[in-house]
Amino acid sequence: MIEVKGVTKRFGPTIAVNNLSFEVKKGEVLGFLGPNGAGKTTMMRIITCYMPASDGIVKVAGHDTLTDSFKVRERIGYLPESAPLYLDMDVTDYLSFVAQVRGIPSNVRRERIKKITDACGLEKVLGKDIGTLSKGYRQRVGLAQSLIHDPDILILDEPTTGLDPGQIIEIRELIKRIGREKTIILCSHILPEVSATCDRILIINEGQKVASGTPEELATATEGNITVRAKIHGKDAEIRERLEAMENVIGCRVITGGGSSPSTFVLKAKQEGDIGQEVFKMVVENNYSLSELRIERVSLEDVFLHLTTKEREAE
């Protein structure tokens, strides 16, 4: 449904998007994840025909964004970051303006607006100026605006940023309900936002793709994906040597305990075998004593942090 091929966008010396390629299939919900400044908004602006790419091709439903921009715009519903709306218009006036430009015939306009405002829970604020609404309600108006022409593609840029926890849940529910039959790109810089709702996640950093896949695939794709914390009584250096000699252990770090308390050994291990059992065996065989053993699987959160901070650490 959406094809992005080798897209680069420069703003003077800044490269906001760097040779990015991806695809979104019909009916798929893609989580577009990356830290602030990664280039998410810029990429969405290119897809929605707000600005052209410096390089590369974007096709939406087979139409090129450069040569067939109107066909593309008709297919897309777009909610830009922080829901920019006309604050001095009331909700109904605003939605009928959008409906008018979206080419909804005047005889069905009222009906359509009613349907959308009901679906978005806006019944109570129809006559109010948008400027007087809470952020949660503004986001709903933004969603209503993006849905009014019943587009098959929905692009949502950080739809819950700046909302309080209750509003976040409501907006997420709304997106899930409304988006059932649509192809969606959901941009976010926070992981739970996309891991809960998306079929597939694409992580970008500094304009480049760093990973993509289903949430499960991503969690298993990184190396050293188990962390073991063990508190062991004994000679630290000796224990460390033995731990490092074990087959599946990749690295070991020691956090020295104070006074009589034992040191903590933090192991990075491969996911093969049963690392817990192996550590336990080693402790028994050598007559150490174990006071704590904790195995942490890597979460998607770790993957995200790992992928998006890698480059900066390397510098």
């Binding site: 025909c49 109107f70 830009p80 920019p84 604050l87 430009v101």
Partner: peptide
């Protein structure tokens, strides 16, 4: 200022 331009210019207009 409000960035409503972005919405306006991504409509078929």
């Amino acid at each position: 200022k409000l960035n409503t331009l972005e919405l306006l210019m991504t409509m078929p207009l």
